[in-house]
Design a protein around this nucleic acid. Structure first.
Length: 415
RNA sequence: GUGGGUGUAGCUCAGUUGGUUAGAGCGCUGGUUUGUGGAGCCGGAGGUCGCGGGUUCGAUCCCCGUCACUCACCCCA
């Protein structure tokens, strides 16, 4: 039997309404916070990601779905959304209007990782980007939107971690200090961290191995090495969060994986997800525009892993659907008459369905029940000859005889 | 890429200390007398016991390999 590709998941009808609910909440809230939707392509030139995410990150080094186009140019299925948004913003000069500086997006992302709980090769993200705004209050707005989004969905026990990783210059100074500190302890670190020491020393700080955590207990803290500018900005962000009574946890070990992050970084975690506990994360990326040959532009955004959100959502949360009317037509004349009525109902905007297979009233009612119909219209030969039909409320079992002409009107009035 | 766990019906799982036709619940489907759903009752369909090899008179069960799924490392949303 043919199967789906490893790490890819079908969203079946039962779960689809849950996804619709999440998307509706996301769209509504992002719009309330002044963001507009942007839809960008699923693949781009490989160079875009290599330049933005960082050539030495795992994503670019070994997780991208990269393939040659027919003319030989290298294309890549998007592993995240920010790079594409920034590219589109530069290409269409969206920075020129204040109406297009706050954007949100939705859609599938692709990373060739080993699948695991909450981790897939095709996964979906909802993300926002606020571009060209340096004010710390925009940081607050973005973090609050993320926080409120999860609260609105009813997620519990979440923690908002926040940190500032400073500018590139701030980090250079800090990394130097950190290496000085780690250097004598190198032999006590795990193998991974010994490698990280030279490739990405910041990562040693959030290693889960107890030995490493112990070794970094008294390590220098990034915040202490922030420039005045970075520090003032960060303190303003925290003050803003406090003023809105958003609970947060300062986490000076919080590091981001993508090269373009700077200054404010944040992450929201849930204890109920296993190893992949981050459901949403983001931060500032003031240097990204320049890395893509655009004008120097401060920016901040976040991305939410929607599969992880669905794992936390209670299953009974679904989109409300309109009441369903099942048309049970049977008999020589009843069936064709019912089919015409079905068409009329649908044209009137009513959600209506039929079972072509069912021959007897019993079978048809059973189908109505299986489809979870709210009402069934019973229409047999007897009804056709009398010019009436029966409207049955499936829940209360009450029935009333109606004129065929009245039915649409009747249903529109609230059934 | 590395390691652990698991593969029996559509789903959730029993089971066989190796022995004839492999079970349950749920789901699906038919009937329960002729025009009224859900419940009950009675019936039915559906499985190469992941795949390949080995041991054996005999393997779904033991051994080896392989694939798939899954969890964790790594990384990240």
């Amino acid at each position: 039997m043919l199967r789906s590709v490893k790490g890819l998941k079908d969203i079946l009808p039962q779960q689809a309404s849950q996804w619709q609910h999440i998307e509706t909440v996301a769209r509504t809230m992002a719009t309330q916070y002044g963001f507009s939707e942007i839809r960008i392509p699923i693949f781009e030139f490989t160079e875009l990601y290599a330049r933005s995410i960082g050539g030495t990150t795992d994503i670019v080094e070994k997780e991208m779905y990269t393939f040659p186009d027919r003319d030989g140019s290298s294309l890549t299925l998007r592993p995240e959304g920010t790079a594409g948004v920034v590219r589109a913003v530069l290409e269409h000069k969206l920075l020129d209007s204040p109406a297009t500086r706050k954007l949100f997006y939705f859609g599938p992302m692709f990373r060739h990782e080993r699948p695991q709980a909450g981790r897939y090769r095709q996964f979906h993200q909802f993300g926002v980007e606020a571009l060209g705004i340096d004010d710390p209050l925009i940081d607050v707005e973005v973090v609050v939107l993320l926080w409120q989004f999860f609260l609105t969905l009813g997620l519990k026990d979440l923690t908002l971690h926040i940190n500032s990783i400073g500018t590139l210059a701030d980090r250079e100074i800090f990394i130097h200090k950190l290496k000085d500190y780690l250097s004598p302890k190198l032999s006590t670190l795990c193998g991974n961290c010994q490698r990280r020491y030279s490739t990405n020393p910041l990562r040693v700080l959030d290693c889960k191995v107890p030995m490493c955590q112990e070794a970094t207990q008294d390590a220098p803290i990034l915040i202490d090495y922030l420039s005045d500018h970075s520090n003032v900005h960060f303190q303003s962000v925290l003050d803003g969060l406090r003023s809105l009574e958003i609970p947060f946890s300062l986490n000076h070990r919080l590091v981001r994986g993508l090269d373009y992050y700077s200054r404010t970084t944040f992450e929201i975690t849930s204890p109920n997800l296993g190893a992949q506990s981050t459901i949403g994360a983001g931060g500032r990326y003031d240097g990204l525009f320049q890395a893509l040959q655009g004008p120097s532009t401060p920016a901040i955004g976040f991305a939410v892993g929607l599969e992880r959100v669905t794992l936390l959502l209670s299953e009974d949360i679904t989109c409300k659907t309109a009441p369903l009317v099942f048309v049970a037509g049977f008999g020589e004349i009843g069936k064709p008459t019912a089919f015409k009525l079905l068409h009329t109902l649908r044209q009137s905007g009513i959600r209506a369905d039929i079972d072509h297979k069912g021959k007897t009233l019993k079978a048809l009612l059973r189908s109505a029940d299986k489809l979870d119909a709210d009402y069934t219209i019973i229409l047999g030969d007897d009804e056709v000859s009398s010019g009436n039909l029966i409207l049955r409320n499936m829940q209360t079992k009450s029935q009333e005889v109606l004129n065929i002409k009245e039915i649409t009107q009747r249903i529109h009035k609230g059934l």
